[in-house]
Design a binder for these strands. Structure first.
Lengths: 222, 222
DNA sequence: TGACAAGTGGAGTGACGACTCCATATTCTG
DNA sequence: CAGAATATGGAGTCGTCACTCCACTTGTCA
């Protein structure tokens, strides 16, 4: 479960190299990157784009989303002009970063949809997200807060996440592990809130908080 | 002190959009809180200070803490100079607003410390804070997030809140209603996280989220 | 009531941030 | 390898914001 979010894969021009999809992932929404229609992007350009995205993730995580674009450029080792060439707006940069993070989560969720132990898969994923968010602090704060609206452009990614998490949740409920009266909305809220709070907690406290939330989510005997 | 808890708010919500108030408007809480020891403060000055604080609360709640000081001045119906006379720094303004909110919570918590039903008092307070925060949205986001550090100056108020909540928690635990293995830190994190998440939830979902958290906090039979 | 301290408003200042422009550099194509 | 297409960096523009300054108004007190 120590699966990191792969920071690689910045170039969306290709379809998933390999997907661990044990069962029934329909090609319904198959081409996720299809809409990136136009240009092949020159080699150095692609490289720089990736550098910027990487730097942006770090900078925003560290300094908050209020960090200046210039700081991102500096950290990426490129000029501001380059940053703006790839992301015409600071907002679009934020959106891209957020999108990448969400995509990572979505992938992790999907990888678990076929797990033998639905309850374990659900809680495991929940914990993973909270853990990740604790590190990426500021970004996830934004993720949990207003930032998620900013990322409205990545509606596709959000849908993907919601879908996968929905499956995880349903299966866990069908297995009788998670109480039946919570929906995706509640789980997402809990996930966001817990992630948000986890950021400034030590591991032990975080574990106890998670324990409380998990207990609340479990099917009650009564 | 074991009196009834008035459903009253932290502050009477007499929000009026008008900026130039007609004669006969009672400013909320003319003499600012308490222990403002030093200066006698002229009558109109006190009035303006209150207007600014009020406006600031609204503005920051509505537009986020990024809202400009000028907007606060406008909303309060005073000049920017006046705002800065009372709060020499934007940060100090934020601090004052946050301090007021926290003080309100602390008061509510204290009012419940002697309640006959410790469990009820604890959960009731928790719910109250979450509900308030949902309205005051942006401010509480800040409260839950980095903003709480900004308000470091109001350490006294924070301590007060912690103290009162601590009593509430302990009593609820002694009554066997709340599980014994959570501490103030966990509760505060849960409170902050839930408040944060509650902001953009409809009432029904919010209620269900609270239900989950409360169940998690309750003493487990196992 | 008059005089003085306290308070006020808002134009002005300096800093900083997002975003533009373009001369120059790098990659690609035939 | 030449030329076209693309991409780059960073100085410069424009707007906004926190905060200052001070001529003027208002409250207070003898």
């Amino acid at each position: 479960m120590a699966a990191d979010i792969p920071p690689a894969e910045t170039q969306p021009a290709e379809t998933q190299p390999a997907e661990t999809q044990p069962a029934g992932t329909q090609p319904t929404k198959a081409p996720p990157a299809a809409s990136r229609s136009a240009k092949p992007l020159r080699a150095d350009a692609a490289r720089n784009r990736a550098k910027v995205l990487d730097a942006a993730r770090d900078v925003f995580a560290e300094l908050g989303t209020g960090a200046s674009t210039e700081e991102v450029a500096r950290r990426a080792g490129v000029g501001i002009g380059t940053v703006f060439r790839h992301f015409p707006t600071k907002e679009s940069l934020l959106e891209a970063v957020l999108g990448e993070i969400l995509a990572g989560f979505a992938e992790q969720a999907k990888a678990r949809t076929g797990a033998a132990d639905p309850g374990g898969a659900f809680f495991d994923f929940f914990q993973l997200v909270v853990g990740e968010s604790a590190t990426k602090n500021a970004v996830s704060a934004e993720l949990a807060g207003a930032g998620i609206d900013i990322a409205a452009g990545r509606a596709d990614v959000r849908q993907e996440l919601r879908g996968a998490l929905g499956v995880l949740l349903t299966r866990a409920q069908e297995a009788g592990v998670v109480r039946a009266d919570v929906g995706l909305g509640e789980v997402l809220a809990l996930l966001a809130g817990t992630s948000q709070a986890a950021g400034k907690l030590d591991v032990a406290t975080r574990a106890r908080v998670l324990d409380v939330v998990f207990d609340g989510l479990r099917s009650q005997p009564s």
